[in-house]
């Protein structure tokens, strides 16, 4: 059975290559900062389970210090010039989209065809991680397709990958760090405390008030925690369940579903949902770190109001 561990090894090797290529990149004045940073990420993927909890903690501390003290630069691997790219685009035309299309096709193939396959009674792919394993497989196949079809140099996936990785920079690790912070918050009982504060200070005798507090609370709590999954148990235990479902007799499916989607409105508005909001800004090389959030707020706020109305109308 192919497990997620195989994917971690692949990721570890790719990050290790980024680290080595960074170390020898004389065009980057901070090349050793980059080399150590991506080297630590590679270590985490290759040996994270052997480091122990404290070892992993020290590794994370290292990542944060390198980023925090501005020791990360941007590598400058040799690449094609804008003029060359125009000429290549002219030459290859629609072929250029093939690798990008191979990626989703292989993901779907993995999920629909490979996932159900069993070898000697064991599934071929770990069923819990089938999508991610398929994605890793698809990344390899699509890269190979690009190399062959577009006749690119053999080192280009690693060099160009490193260029993009440096473009994202420290933001690449922020989602994983925030997930870890969420775990510390949970240990310290932060969620329950905020939930108690909300429920004990706002009177919710009227149905509309209770619906509004639940939906806005889901969104607000998600903004603070960066994740609707963290907000849902707290807000639903505090308001959704005792007041909306048991008190006013609301339909649990409607309350839960629209409550969660109210949380998603919060996800659109918070820098703590880094993989959706900050990483794309880095990836698109936007000077304003919060540009994507700013583009989303005018959709998120009216949608939140719509959720309050929908829950009020549909749940009772």
């Amino acid at each position: 059975m192919i497990r997620i561990g195989a994917v971690y090894v692949l990721a570890g090797l790719v990050f290790a290559a980024f680290a080595v290529l960074s170390a020898v990149d004389r065009n980057n004045s901070k090349r050793f900062g980059n080399a150590v940073f991506w080297g630590l990420v590679a270590t985490s993927f290759l040996a994270g389970d052997l480091l122990g909890d404290l070892g992993n903690g020290v590794l994370v501390l290292g990542l944060a210090l390198i980023a925090g003290f501005g020791l990360l630069g941007r590598g400058q691997p040799a690449t094609t010039s804008p003029e060359e790219r125009q000429a290549l685009a002219e030459r290859f035309g629609g072929k250029l989209f093939v690798p990008a299309l191979v990626l989703p096709v292989v993901v779907i193939f993995g999920v629909l065809v490979l996932k159900p396959i069993e070898l000697a009674g064991a599934p071929l792919l770990d069923p819990k991680q089938a999508t991610l394993i398929s994605l890793a497989l698809a990344a390899v196949v699509a890269t190979a397709t690009g190399l062959i079809l577009l006749r690119q140099p053999l080192m280009s996936p690693l060099q160009e990958g490193r260029r993009l990785m440096d473009t994202v920079g420290w933001a690449a690790l922020l989602p994983q760090m925030l997930a870890a912070l969420g775990a510390v918050f949970a240990l310290a009982g932060v969620g329950d405390l905020i939930g108690r504060l909300v429920t004990s200070h706002i009177p919710m005798d009227a149905r509309l008030t209770a619906v509004a507090v639940y939906c806005l609370g889901m969104a607000g709590f998600t903004v603070i925690m960066g994740n609707a999954f963290a907000a849902f148990p707290v807000m639903t235990a505090g308001i959704g369940l005792p007041i909306l479902i048991r008190g006013f007799g609301g339909d649990p499916a409607v309350v839960a579903s629209i409550g969660m989607l109210s949380g998603f409105c919060g996800t659109l508005m918070t820098p703590l949902a880094a993989n959706f909001n900050l990483v794309p800004a880095a990836l698109l090389e936007l000077p304003d770190r919060y540009a994507v959030i700013k583009a989303q707020i005018p959709t998120a706020l009216p949608l939140l109001v719509a959720n309050v109305v929908l829950m009020y109308v549909l749940a009772f």
Partner: peptide, 26 residues
């Protein structure tokens, strides 16, 4: 913190698509 970081490595696997993106951009 270290334990939770190690258990959340799934999230960072997504960057495996960068080499393909880099090749087609090149």
């Amino acid at each position: 913190f270290g334990k939770a970081f190690n258990e959340s490595r799934l999230i960072t696997v997504a960057y495996l698509v960068l080499p393909m993106v880099g090749v087609v951009e090149r």
